[in-house]
């Protein structure tokens, strides 16, 4: 049965009729067409569905939509401003942090959460923050490089 869900998604307040058993990822992708958030494993093992809930990284595939009522949800779509990609997105692009790109939104959201609380993380801290995100292409070195390189940037390019 659908009930009303009030929350903020990417800075905009929303009110939608959402099924009681809907997962956050299905609400974001199917109801709001925010398909940047990826379904990888569906079991909480890969991190491709990572979004921010009140600034904390959360797995949208194992979170009930109604459990984030009243909270602030941010997806990868929120990062670009007026057509300009964010410093992290730019850094992944320039440092070859993305290959097939499927894990990239989750990687970037997990890294975004890290940089908000720790603007100058060392490589171990970056690896620890991304420990829940799987990549089958890059071997992770370029991803850690990308996050590290983004730390020096003040603004989106």
């Amino acid at each position: 049965m659908k009930t009303m869900l009030r929350l903020s998604v990417n800075g905009k307040p929303r009110e939608d009729a959402v099924a009681e058993n809907a997962l956050l990822i299905d609400y974001l992708r199917d109801a709001l067409a925010l398909t940047g958030t990826k379904q990888g494993c569906d079991g909480g093992e890969c991190g491709a569905c990572t979004v921010l809930v009140d600034g904390q990284p959360r797995l949208a595939c194992s979170t009930l939509a109604h459990s984030v009522a009243g909270r602030e949800v941010e997806t990868v779509e929120s990062l670009s401003q007026e057509g300009n990609i964010s410093r992290l997105q730019r850094s992944f692009h320039e440092n070859l942090g993305a290959q097939c790109g499927f894990c990239t939104p989750g990687m970037i959201m997990a890294a975004e959460a890290l940089l908000r609380v720790n603007p100058k993380p060392d490589r171990d801290q970056i690896r620890a923050a991304l420990a829940g995100n799987l990549c089958r292409c890059t071997g992770y070195v370029k991803i850690v490089d990308s996050v590290e390189a983004a730390c020096g940037r003040e603004h989106a390019l």
Partner: peptide
Amino acid sequence: VAGPTHRAA
């Protein structure tokens, strides 16, 4: 336990 994203929840 698990990874940082799991531990936050």
